[in-house]
């Protein structure tokens, strides 16, 4: 058996409450607010308390998909990434860097946002990157 608690940060609102995810045999089974966290001191809202529930939802995406003849086909990572990279490169070469645009995300980590804007700016050569801070 393996039971662990993992200290992390709530992914919902901008409060950034600290919480422990309970992990029993590699399944996230519960949420416990962190008592000593500066933001929430042992409290959470209803979203935070149930944050573990969507993690194992059967609707989660588990395989890369590429549209073929109008519908999605499951493909390997190699195929999905090659396809994406070559199409992005092609758009850039044919129509210029300004023809490619990126939406960054308020839901992913700082590190991932950093990489995405670096990818847009350094690899594709465009400043067309925005996210829904405005929303």
């Amino acid at each position: 058996m393996d039971y662990r608690t993992v200290l992390t940060t709530c992914p919902y609102c901008g409060c950034g409450c600290g919480l422990y995810l309970e992990v029993l045999d590699n399944k996230v089974t519960g949420t416990i607010p962190c008592k000593t966290h500066p933001m929430n001191q042992g409290k959470l809202c209803v979203k935070g308390w149930n944050v573990h529930e969507f993690v194992h939802n059967p609707n989660r995406l588990t395989c890369p998909l590429v549209r073929k003849n109008g519908s999605f086909a499951e493909v390997s990572w190699d195929e999905a990434l090659d396809y994406t990279a070559s199409r992005l490169k092609a758009a850039k070469e044919r129509h210029g860097s300004r023809s490619v645009a990126f939406m960054a995300s308020a839901k992913v980590t700082n590190e991932e946002n950093y990489l995405l804007q670096k990818f847009a700016r350094a690899a594709i050569g465009t400043n067309n990157i925005d996210h829904c801070a405005r929303l």
Binding site: V6, L7, T8, G14, G16, G18, V23, V108, N110
Partner: peptide
């Protein structure tokens, strides 16, 4: 193309909350 990413419980990283506080996200599974 749809690329399946990881949710917050499945990765390491940081979030910055509304009061500019950089907080750790830790991989659980």
């Amino acid at each position: 193309v749809v690329l399946p990413g990881a949710c917050f419980a499945e990765k390491d990283g940081t979030f910055t909350n509304t009061e500019r506080r950089v907080l750790r996200v830790r991989k659980a599974i």
